[in-house]
């Protein structure tokens, strides 16, 4: 698959730009490029539901990140053992990638998935659930408890954001 490799190279380049550029707003925009590349690669990998969802989530997270970075300057501090820390980090990542290479050689080949559970889903999803889209059948029928957990996590996150971002504490609070 040449297309997915090219898209991955584009995403890696955008990610490196996002990590290394000093301006925070440019960094956030570069992350947006990574997300759009991810959406396109979902489309190439035959996952249209995920491509749509990724596009929506990407736009939303871009808006949230821009809200955090707008009109805030970045004092860049480069003190400390810069060379030693960077060298040790890159060495660790190289060891990580070498180990990953050897463990990938034991995995199944790219383009030939195992599909032990999924074969059953693909065979009987249409007859049992009546859904044309197998992904909708899995998320809403076979594994609907999982989706319930997802909604619960989303609700917990919203409650957490409200609690964190609250400006005024209670009238009888400890301070203010």
């Amino acid at each position: 698959m040449l297309e997915i490799d090219l898209l991955l190279l584009f995403m890696i380049a955008s990610a490196i730009i996002a990590v290394q550029v000093k301006d925070l707003l440019s960094s956030v925009i570069a992350v947006g490029a990574v997300g759009i590349g991810l959406s396109m690669s979902f489309l190439i990998m035959k996952a249209p539901d995920l491509a749509i969802m990724q596009l929506v989530v990407e736009v939303l997270s871009l808006i949230i990140l821009i809200r955090a970075t707008i009109r805030k300057d970045l004092p860049f501090s480069a003190s400390g053992r810069w060379a030693f820390n960077t060298f040790s980090m890159i060495l660790f990542l190289a060891v990580f990638l070498v180990f990953a290479y050897f463990s990938f050689s034991d995995m199944h080949r790219f383009g030939a998935p195992l599909m032990k559970v999924s074969q059953e889903y693909l065979g009987e999803a249409m007859a049992k659930t009546g859904a044309h889209n197998v992904i909708a059948a899995i998320t809403l029928k076979y594994r609907s408890i999982d989706t319930l957990g997802e909604v619960a996590a989303l609700f917990a996150a919203v409650v957490g954001v409200l609690a964190i971002a609250r400006k005024v504490s209670r009238p009888g609070g400890i301070r203010k």
Binding site: M53, S61, S118, T147, V161
Partner: peptide, 27 residues
């Protein structure tokens, strides 16, 4: 067809990642 099970899992993970980003930005 491609394997639908990882796609369904990733669909959940994408939404959770949005919630995580939202909470981190609030912090």
């Amino acid at each position: 067809m491609v394997d639908p099970l990882p796609q369904a899992m990733a669909l959940t993970a994408i939404v959770i990642s949005l919630a995580v980003t939202m909470m981190l930005v609030a912090l």
